[in-house]
Amino acid sequence: MSPMIYFLSGVTLASAVAAMTLRNPVHCALALVVTFTGLAGIYLGLGAQFLGLAQVVVYVGAVAILLLFVLLVTRSGEAGDGDRERDRVAERSWWGWLIALLVGAVLAVGAWSAGQLPQRAAPPELPGVRDIGEALMTDFAMPLQVVGLLLTAAMIGGAIIALREDRMRVAAEREGRR
């Protein structure tokens, strides 16, 4: 199983780097899809079946599609725009990488020292879908409600933010015509 995990990790990391460095935003989003799928594979390897599949449904099926849709609507994927993006990146992007690498180094020390934690000897009892459902309905009922509320609020908020300008412009044009 171990070589499989290393292969998946390599693919995930390489596509993540691609997602953050490629010039064309649409290519970035497509590379991000590979990252999400690779992570789902790693979750499956860790025994979190439900989480891995949920990751694919939510990230590949919804978030990535949404990203691509917005890229289409804002015409970020067209030629020309990519070159402009590159110029902007070239100016001072190394600052971002420097800061991120410093933060990463600190975190990596922490991750390395986690190896000295007492390890679980036997793998845990892997929960089935039924266990997860029962936990969601009993111990985690309150967080579930809150997440539902959050998603509703996000949906309404997203719709209003994206709609408002359009409505206002239509109304203004109507006023102007009068």
Binding site: S9, T12, L13, E85, W94, W95, G104, L107, A108
Partner: peptide, 17 residues
């Protein structure tokens, strides 16, 4: 370590793009 690397890449991208 993979999680750390992903975090680093994501942060670098968020800061530089």
């Amino acid at each position: 370590l993979l999680a750390v690397a992903l975090f680093t890449v994501g942060m670098a991208g968020a800061l530089s793009r």
